[in-house]
């Protein structure tokens, strides 16, 4: 996981962004407070339209906040001149869902691009580019054009490009949303590796809880233009405090059909090994349950993930089942009607 938090590299204070259209005002962000520590992998999660993309663009001033401040490494970005903002942006790499590579440049040319902009000499830029392409595992595709690369390779080039100017922060805007699950995994592993080896702070924007679980130390949940919840990923995942968090953590929609029934959400945090918990619970309580949803992973012989089961209608049996699960050291909570 991420390095031990030291001091905030990004501090957002009562940030708001309002768009004016002809007919109405749209509040994309409303009173956001966040602080992101040096060296951590910080996740920002929300449904589409929640304002997360606007938020990440406020961090590097691609969007000017309507009010509030963004402190980057102690400097208030909104008080800088245009030239100073451009300088600050070189300390913040950014990668995108659609990669946004220059199609008319080779992989090497793309990585050299930010260096050219920064005025680095050509030979020096090329040397740096070949270093970075090696780091992302693409040394052999140096002369390939983006159209000749796969999605995962394109994102690797984009990562190399974003790292070219030695940034302190890497902003990832839905960086894996256009990739298949296997490629997503390898890109996440690369990001984690970069975080560990180079100590770069990474901010991950996504709508998928799986991504947050996989690499983030802390997470902020953004909903309706506000931060609904912010904390360590384990805490938010096991004990979601707000409706917005629950909606993201719980398998949305899938359990909706069983609205009338009593349901229990069980979270596996890796503490139980191969013990067949559900089967044992059924034997112990003498009533069957219906598994409505399960998403568990086996990491090093331990079960991680969650499951939603439909409980028998009798109140006593249901209570016994809750007690049984809790007695096995697992987190269990009742899934309420308005979930999903």
């Amino acid at each position: 996981m991420a390095a031990v938090p030291e001091k905030p590299i990004i501090e957002i204070r009562s940030l708001s962004k309002t768009y004016k259209t002809d007919t109405a005002e749209i509040h994309a962000l409303n009173g956001i407070d966040l602080s992101i520590q040096k060296g951590e992998i910080f996740g920002i999660i929300g449904m589409s339209g929640a304002g997360k993309s606007t938020l990440v663009r406020c961090i590097n001033m691609l969007e000017k906040p309507t009010s509030g401040t963004v402190l980057f490494d102690g400097r208030d970005l909104s008080k800088l001149t245009d030239a100073e903002v451009r300088g600050a942006r070189r300390s913040m790499g950014m990668i995108f869902q659609q990669f946004n590579l220059l199609m008319q440049r080779t992989a090497e040319g793309n990585v050299c691009f930010p260096l050219e902009i920064a005025g680095v000499k050509k030979e020096k830029a090329k040397a740096r580019a070949s270093q970075l392409l090696e780091l992302v595992g693409l040394s052999d595709r140096r002369d390939s054009y983006p159209s000749q690369l796969s999605g995962g390779q394109k994102q690797r080039v984009a990562i190399a490009r974003a790292l070219a100017t030695d940034p302190k922060v890497l902003l990832c805007d839905e960086a894996t949303s256009a990739l298949d699950p296997t490629t997503t995994k390898s890109i996440l592993a690369l990001l984690q590796d970069i975080n560990r080896r180079l100590g770069i702070t990474i901010v991950v924007i996504t709508h998928e809880m799986g991504i947050i679980e996989a690499i983030c130390g802390r997470v902020a949940i953004i909903s309706d233009s506000r931060i609904a919840e912010c904390g360590r990923v384990e805490d938010v995942f096991f004990k979601p405090k707000t409706e917005a968090a629950r909606r993201l953590v719980c398998p949305e929609g899938r359990v909706d059909r069983f609205r009338s029934s009593r349901r229990m959400r069980i979270v596996f945090d890796g503490s139980s090994a191969f013990e067949p918990v559900i089967a044992n619970m059924v034997l112990a309580c003498g009533k069957p349950v219906n598994i409505l949803y399960a998403d568990t992973k086996n990491i090093g012989g331990k079960a991680f993930g969650q499951m939603v089961v439909q409980l028998p209608e009798e109140r006593d049996t249901a209570r016994k089942m809750f007690e049984y699960i809790r007695s096995r050291g697992l987190t269990a909570e009742e899934v309420r009607e308005n979930v999903g």
Binding site: N60, L62, V85, R86, G87, A88, R89, R90, M92, G93, M94, F96, Q98, N100, L101, L102, M103, F113, P114, E116, I117, A118, A158, R161, T165, L171
Partner: peptide
């Protein structure tokens, strides 16, 4: 998106036009 990427790297408007 490519223009935005260039802006995120600190490119000036003139650099965006030319490069």
């Amino acid at each position: 998106g490519v223009v935005e990427a260039a802006q995120s790297m600190g490119a000036t408007t003139f650099q965006i036009i030319r490069k």
